[in-house]
Design a protein around this nucleic acid. Structure first.
Lengths: 220, 220, 220, 220
DNA sequence: CCGTAAGCGAGACGGTACGTCCAGTCTTCTG
DNA sequence: CAGAAGACTGGACGTACCGTCTCGCTTACGG
C-alpha cells in the first residue's frame, strides 16, 4: 500500500515530506489494519456494492475493525477511496522499444489491461465515478496517477517528433489525446465491456495512418 | 420535460406504451411541481452540491415541495437524475454538409458545446459520475442519449466510406471512437477546463490525416 | 403520562401555558410511541439497568422506535428521565382527617408506599440518583413533585398550630423536616430495603411526643 | 489518601490484608500518580463536571497520567469514586460530653459541616448520586462510612437510655433516624443550600421535646 | 354543483450511517 | 518492570436522510 495511507493529511495534500524523526510514542499503528481496510473495500465493491452502499460503517465491519481505526487513518470516504485507487496502480511498462509506434502500443496495451480491463471494471467504474464527482479528489487523482501516464506518452511522442516518426505541426498534447481518447471512449461509452485483444495496435496504427484512405496501397 | 417524468417506471424501463385511458380521477399532478423539482436539482448542483450532498430531502426543501410529491413522480434519486440529464439534452445538429469532414466537425462541435463545455461542466460531471456508478442507469442513459449521437456519427462515417472519403479497411465503430475519444479525453482527463474554440476542427483534421508526417505537403 | 412528555420544552421549563391553537401541520405525533418509550425505560430499569447502562440507543431499541422519535420528544436523557419520574407520580391522599396526627400518618404512609416502597425501589434509586446529580434536573423535579408534597405537609402543620395540636415556637418548615426526614433516612441510609408496615404511625407518634421520656404516662 | 487506593481489589472488597512482602520488583508505583488522579477528579467535579461527563479518559488527561496507570490502581470508575469519597472523610468528633443531648448536637453538627455543608456540596452530590445508583457501591460506602457514624449515634442513644435521658419504649435505631433524618431532609430536599448555623441544636432539642405543645412552660 | 378521489405541503414514522467520543485493553518506547 | 503515550475493538452519542405513512387541506373531474 502507498505510504500515504499512513498519513491522512498527505493523502489529500499529495506532498509527503516525511516528518523524519517525529517523536514516535505510544503504540504504533497496526499495519494489518491498514490492509484489512483496503481489502474490505475491494471485497465489498467486487460483491456489487455501489458507492452509495459503501458505508464507512460497513467497511469497518467487513474489515473487523473499529470505526475509529478507519478514521484515524483517513479523514473520510474520499481520502480512503484515493488510496484504494492507488492500491490498484501498476508501474508503467518500459518504453524503450525500437520504434515510437511500438512504445505507443505498449502504453495503450498497458491502459487496456490495467485500468480498463474487465476484472477491475466494476471496481474502477465505482471508484472512478466517485472520484470524478469531487473536484478535489479528481485533482489529486490526476496529480498522482493520470499525470505520470500522460507524461510518459508525451515523452514518447516528443521522441517521435525528433526522429521524424511523428508530425510536428500540431501541439504534442493534442496528439496525445488522439491515442488515449479512443481507448477511453471504448471503456466509457460502450458499456464497459472488456476491451478486445488487438485494440491497442489497432488504435495506434489507425491514428498514425489517419482515417482518410491512403493515397497509395499501403503506408510503407 | 420528458413525459417519462410522469411515469417513474418508464423512466428506467425506457419503453412507455401509455396506459391509454387509465381512469384519470382526482386532482391532476401539478406541472409546476415537476419543473420546480428539476430546477431545484440544477440549482443545487450549480451551487456546488456534490452527488452525496444532494439529498432527496434537500431537493424537496429547495423546490418547496413535499417529499411525497417527489417520490410520486420518480422512484428514487436515480430515476430523477436520469430525467435531469435528459432535461439538459439538445437536438443533434443537421448533418447534411457538403463533405463528410464538415459533418464530423459539426458533430464534434456539438459535443464540445453541449455536454462538455464549461457552463454545464460541474453539473454534468456530477450527474454523469452518478449515472456511471450504476450500471442500469448507465444502460438507460446510453440508450436514450449516447446511442443517438453514436449512430449519427456512424451514419456520417458510412456515408464517407461510400464516397471514398473514409477508409474502409477498419470497422466503422472503431473509427468512430477515434473522433469522439479525443474530445472525451480533453474533457475528462484534463481538469475539465472548457474546451477551446477550434478543437473540433483540429481533431477531425488530424484524425483524418493521421499523426505520421504526411509524405506530401498536404492531403490534396 | 403527563402531558409534559408531549412538550419537550415544557419538560424542563415547568411552565406549560399551552400554545392553544398552534398550527397543527404534518402528521401528528404518535401517542403510542410516547408510552412505548416511557415503558421501555421502566422495563429496562426493572431488569437491572443502571443509569450508565441506560442508553438512548437501547431505549429506542427496546421501545421498537427510531432514535429520532425519542429525540423529537425529549432533548436528552435528562428530560426523558424527568418525565419517567413524573409518570410514577401518584396523587396525594386526601388530608381532611379528624386530627392533625391522622393526616400526618396518611402523608407519611403515602410516602412509604409511593416513592419509597420496595417495588419501585430499584427504579427510583436509579432515576433519583440521576436526577440528583444534575442541579437543573433536581430543581425541576423539586418544583414539580417535591414542592407539592411539602406544601401539603406544611398546610397540615399550620392547621395543627391553629388547633393547638402543634407547637408554635418553631418555624413550620423546620418541623416539617422532622416528619419527612426519618422516612428519608430509612429509605436512603439503610440499604433501601422495603419499609415496614407501621412505620408511618411510629414516626409520627414519636416525633409528636418527643424522644425524651414523657414525665407522665400520656400527653393528656 | 486511604491506602485502599493502592489496592484496587480491596477498594471494593473492603478488607485490606496487605500482601505483605509480595516480591516488589521493578520500578515502584509513583505515589504522586495516586494523588494526582484523586485530585484530578476533585478538580473536575468542582469545575462543574457531572458524573456522566467525568470520563476516565478525561481524568487521566487532567492528572497527566496514562489511562493504564489509572486502571492499574482501580478496577473502574466505581472503585475510583469510592476512594474519592473516602478521601473526603473526616474523623468523628469525640462523644463524651456531659449530657447525651450535647453529644447528639456534636454529632449532628459534624454531619452538618462535613458531608452536607456548602463547600463540598456539588462534589458530594455528584459522587453520592453515582454511588447510590449502584447497589454494590452503596453497600460498600455504607460499610465504610455510614455504619461508623450510625453506630456512634446508637451508642450515644443507648447511653441515654441507660441514664434515663432517652425513652426506652422505642427501638433505638428508629430513634436514631429521628435525629439524622431531618438533617438529611434539609440537605437533600431543599435545594442543597448550605445548612444554617444553629441547625444541629434546633433539631436535637425539638426532637427530644416533641412537636406537640408541652403541657408545661418548659421541659424542666 | 356537489361528492370524491387524488393531488398538495408538512412532518412523524422506523431505520441506517454519519463522524466523534469514551470504555477498557493492549503494545510500544523510555526511564 | 512501571510509566506515558496512544492504538486497538466496541458501542453510544445526537444529527441527517432514507422511503413510507398519515394529517388536514385544495383542486378538478364526473355523475
Amino acid at each position: 500500500m502507498s505510504r500515504a495511507a499512513r498519513d491522512p493529511q498527505a493523502a489529500v495534500a499529495g506532498a509527503e515530506p516525511e516528518p523524519v524523526a517525529a517523536e514516535r510514542r505510544g503504540r504504533p499503528r497496526s499495519a494489518a489494519a491498514d490492509s484489512a481496510i483496503i481489502e474490505a473495500v475491494l471485497r465489498l465493491i467486487e460483491n456489487g456494492a455501489s458507492m452509495g452502499e459503501l458505508s464507512m460503517e460497513g467497511i469497518a465491519r467487513e474489515a473487523g475493525v473499529g470505526k475509529a481505526t478507519v478514521y484515524r487513518r483517513w479523514s473520510g470516504k474520499d481520502a480512503l477511496m484515493l488510496d484504494v485507487m492507488r492500491s490498484l496502480d501498476a508501474p508503467l511498462p518500459p518504453l524503450d522499444g525500437d520504434s515510437v509506434r511500438d512504445d505507443l502500443v505498449s502504453l495503450l496495451e498497458f491502459l487496456r489491461r490495467r485500468g480498463l480491463a474487465k476484472r477491475d471494471s466494476a471496481l474502477l467504474r465505482t471508484v472512478v465515478s466517485h472520484v470524478q464527482a469531487h473536484p478535489e479528489l479528481w485533482e489529486e487523482y490526476h496529480r498522482s496517477v493520470v499525470r505520470a501516464r500522460n507524461e510518459a506518452l508525451l515523452a514518447v511522442l516528443r521522441r517521435g517528433m525528433a526522429t521524424g516518426e511523428i508530425r510536428t505541426d500540431r501541439p504534442v498534447d493534442t496528439l496525445a489525446d488522439l491515442f488515449v481518447g479512443p481507448m477511453l471512449a471504448r471503456a466509457f461509452l460502450h458499456r464497459w465491456k472488456d476491451l478486445p485483444e488487438g485494440l491497442a495496435e489497432d488504435i495506434v496504427d489507425t491514428v498514425l495512418d489517419g482515417v482518410r484512405p491512403r493515397p497509395r496501397a499501403a503506408a510503407g
